[in-house]
Design a binder for these strands. Structure first.
Length: 435
DNA sequence: GCGTTACTCATTGTCGTTCG
DNA sequence: CGAACGACAATGAGTAACGC
């Protein structure tokens, strides 16, 4: 087992230590314990936390503490009675231990918090640790992951709390780049994770299926229902014996989004309706006003198909790919082009095929018409780039209005060379054939 | 704020089934 | 055959919602 999980163990050790402490707590005690940890984390985040832990005392801000108590909980307000209960629950937390190493054979218990006090005048929650309790066991949480009280407090199953925190630790802080999204856990490991032992939970040690049904199953159900994770698992069997569970856990899609979410609002929330302008001046003023700090067009004439242009806060055109403002001449040309192609404004999610089609519509191609075996001019309608990204199919219109296809003949590069603004007469540029 | 009620969770246990 | 599984029930503890 040590071999199998060696990758994670250094991180897990801290966590397991924590869990073993936690498993001895009642549900309420777990809640208050987590509240305390997240208060510390929250204060560290805002820089308000003064590290007094080495002296065996911890001071927390009462408002932050209350805020954390409320997170994810159904209660709307914390009153004095609830604070009293919380303090009582805290001081009641004990840790039982057994040592059996070499000559040593001891059992014992110690309190984790000797004293917990709220001073309403200074607005402080102060906690004094029991002498035996090593504070480094308490605080590693801040190193592996931020507690998600929001979700933790929606769970009514204590195993859901433990399992969820375990997965969160493996995923890490970044939803988009999870540290891990799957793990195989041996049943013995799960028992230690949940703090299940032979003396206190006979049936869970005797009968694995009962263990799974009563602990893992409801925990996974609650995590899937209430939290930001989706969890599934497979039972791995040796013969009939379940020896391990293979878990898969991923952030729910709606929580991975933030990156994508940032782009659409800046790009597509632009005015949906684009008025037609008869005067260039009006057009330009409207575009600058509507698209300030936003991308306005993609792949305009003479630019690469994926080059997006945006309007800077000062109203200048700015090439997003090269990160440069356009020089005055280019800007003037592009403004003129945009005025001609007003339907392109705001469409910034176009594919290469769409950009080339829109940019070249109604230009001319000079080809051989096989049906009459003559060279003719046809009008470019549409291009579809093939999967290889090099060749393309082209849709053209004959003079009589009939639509024809040129399949897989042109490369994109050759097509661009072949397209002309005016009909050609005698020169043969290329020998593309239409049937 | 208090007591009642309904519900969920945690744990143990029984019993029949299945598969090695 | 027997070990392990799985369905189901019983029980106590804890919690939330409700009405007074």
């Amino acid at each position: 087992m040590a071999k199998k999980y060696s990758l994670d163990l250094y991180k897990h050790n801290d966590f397991i230590k924590m869990v073993q402490v936690k498993k001895q707590m009642s549900f309420q005690q777990q809640r208050i314990f987590d509240t305390m940890l997240s208060t510390v984390q929250e204060m560290k985040k805002t820089g308000d936390f003064i590290d007094l832990v080495s002296e065996g005392e911890l001071r927390m801000d009462l408002d932050v503490f209350k805020e954390q108590m409320l997170r994810g909980s159904k209660i709307k307000k914390i009153n004095r009675k609830e604070l009293e209960d919380a303090l009582e629950a805290m001081v009641d937390i004990k840790f039982k231990y057994t040592i059996k190493e070499g000559n040593q054979d001891k059992i014992g218990t110690f309190v984790i918090f000797q004293k917990a006090e709220i001073d309403f005048n200074t607005g402080e929650v102060s906690v004094i640790f029991g002498k035996e309790f090593r504070t480094e066991n308490l605080l590693p949480t801040s190193n592996y992951t931020a507690l998600s009280l929001e979700f933790l407090n929606t769970f009514s199953s204590q195993y859901a709390r433990l399992l969820y925190q375990y997965f969160k630790m493996l995923i890490g802080k970044n939803y988009n780049k999870p540290f891990r999204t799957d793990i195989v856990l041996e049943i013995d490991f799960i028992k230690s994770l949940f703090g299940i032992n032979e003396i206190e939970h006979k049936m869970y040690t005797k009968n694995t299926s009962v263990l799974l049904k009563n602990t893992i199953e409801p925990a996974v159900k609650q995590i899937n229902e209430f939290s930001d994770l989706i969890v599934s698992y497979d039972k791995l069997k040796r013969g009939r014996k379940i020896y391990s569970l293979a878990f898969e856990f991923k952030p729910k899609p709606e929580y991975i989004k933030p990156k994508e979410e940032e782009i659409p609002p800046t790009n597509t929330t632009s005015p949906l309706f684009i008025p037609e302008f008869k005067k260039f001046r009006d057009f330009r003023d409207w575009v600058v006003e509507s698209y300030r700090n936003k991308e306005v067009i993609i792949g305009p004439n003479n630019y690469l198909y994926n080059t997006a242009i945006k309007i800077t806060s000062l109203g200048y055109l700015h090439n997003v790919v090269s990160c440069k403002d356009l020089d005055p001449d280019s800007a003037q040309n592009l403004w003129a082009w945009m005025y001609e192609h007003q339907d392109r404004i705001g469409k910034i999610n176009l594919s290469q095929s769409e950009v080339l089609t829109l940019n070249n519509k109604d230009r001319y191609l000079y080809v051989i018409d096989q049906s009459i075996n003559k060279k003719v001019n046809v009008i470019f309608q549409e291009v579809n780039i093939l999967e290889n990204g090099v060749h393309c199919d082209v849709v053209v219109k004959r003079e009589d209005g009939e639509i024809k296809n040129i399949k897989n003949y042109y490369t994109i590069e050759k097509l661009m060379e072949a397209l002309q603004d005016k009909p050609l007469l005698d020169e043969v540029v290329l020998e593309a054939k239409i049937l």
